[in-house]
Amino acid sequence: MCTYITKHLEIAGSAKGSSGWFPATTASVYFDHPVHAPADHTLNIDVLNLSLGPEHRVALELDPASARSLAQAILELVDGLPAVNR
């Protein structure tokens, strides 16, 4: 199935894609068919800069367990930061 469920986030940071580093401004997170990963469905993340064009993109296709591990690791690290850095 296509779940079509997509979450869009405004983000601030940098990402490195096929054309080098760029300011990352948007992220799409969705569970849908992958382009490359050998699975019916994956948790996909696109980090984008819509104003710079389609080649400014970093893509991830993760199996759900990997996506959960990644999310937990990020939350543990961010939650452990001093309040001033959050």
């Binding site: 948007t26 984008l48 064009g53 389609p54």
Partner: peptide, 15 residues
């Protein structure tokens, strides 16, 4: 996304 690879174009269209 004129001229972009299909997956990059689809990501932009989705966004």
């Amino acid at each position: 996304a004129p001229g972009a690879s299909p997956d990059d174009a689809a990501a932009i269209a989705r966004a």
